[in-house]
Write a protein that binds this DNA or RNA. Structure first.
Length: 274
DNA sequence: GGCACGGCCCATTCGT
DNA sequence: ACGAATGGGC
DNA sequence: GTGCC
């Protein structure tokens, strides 16, 4: 590779370390002649997301030990249940599968008042569901949330920090990426299953569902109605636990820590999740 | 051989 | 002003 | 690039 294009590749990779900068934005900044993250920081047109990404570019690359994940989650649970005991929350992703380290904290939230109907209402009004707004407000007041990346109808993305000094480093705890995702309570178990993964298990369960004439996704398990010409999702199958889903698919239940299939079943496409 | 490779949420920009 | 398209994240 | 149709 020529020196010039090697330098360009290096810069593209550097800029893409910043959350909020992907391939397209990185190219744009290279074209502008930027050579460093400092050049980037002087750009007056960074999006808010990119500003936050740049501010914490080093911290976001550091792994989160499991005990810190547990402590962060405990704060969220305690804070939200103090304002409303009917909040239900669970951390998903590799953490729920028992990983010793994680990249960020991804929490799904439910509340008996947040139904599929309520979700439709909220989206039509383009308003953040009050249950999410209230949760974020409580966590901000506490000082736990330090920055936001985005706040929508049903999903908050931001930055949190455990209070006090980390005994491992004798420094303040690092800033960590946190997502709060509200899902209608009817979809809790299929949502939990999907966001816990891993992606390989999701594939297996979805294709098994298909074989049996269902469709499975984070919104539920449905029968597929087949007519001559078209195929439409049918009635929703009632699901009251993760076990229910495995049962309907004729699969033995797998505990979350048994769901690390990636690499066991060999696959080239390591795309989504976490 | 041709085709798909997840699908949706949020922020921002573009086009009318 | 508003909806569509794009970029990004997961 | 690979697996599926």
């Amino acid at each position: 590779m020529s020196p010039a294009s090697q330098e360009e590749t290096n810069l593209l990779n550097l800029f893409q370390r910043v959350s909020g900068i992907g391939v397209v934005a990185a190219k744009k900044f290279v074209d502008k002649g930027y050579k460093s993250l400092e050049d980037l920081s002087n750009d007056p047109n960074l999006t808010h997301h990119q500003c936050v990404g740049l501010k914490y570019v080093d911290e976001f690359e550091k792994e989160i030990p499991r005990d810190e994940m547990e402590n962060l989650l405990a704060i969220v649970k305690k804070t939200l249940n103090e304002i409303d005991s009917r909040y239900n929350m669970e951390a998903c992703g590799s953490f729920r599968r028992g990983a010793n380290i994680s990249g960020d904290l991804d929490i799904i939230l439910t509340h008996p008042d947040f139904t599929e109907v309520e979700e439709k209402v909220v989206k039509r009004h383009k308003a953040t569901t009050p249950l999410l707004a209230q949760a974020v407000q409580a966590l901000e007041k506490y000082g736990f949330l330090t920055d936001f990346v985005s706040t929508g109808n049903v999903k908050y993305m931001g930055v949190c920090q455990f209070p006090g000094t980390d005994p491992r480093s004798n420094q303040p705890y690092l800033h960590r990426r946190i997502d709060l995702r509200f899902i209608p309570h009817e979809n809790y178990y299929t949502g939990l299953l999907a966001w816990t993964g891993d992606d390989e298990l999701n594939r297996i369960m979805r294709s098994r569902a298909k074989e049996l004439g269902y469709t499975l996704n984070e919104y539920g398990l449905r029968r597929r109605i087949k007519t001559e010409t078209e195929e439409t999702p049918g009635e929703k199958i009632p699901i009251n636990s993760e076990e229910d889903v495995f049962k309907k698919l004729g699969m033995p239940y797998m505990e979350p820590h048994e769901r690390n299939l990636r690499g066991v079943v060999k696959k080239k496409y390591l795309m989504y999740e976490e």
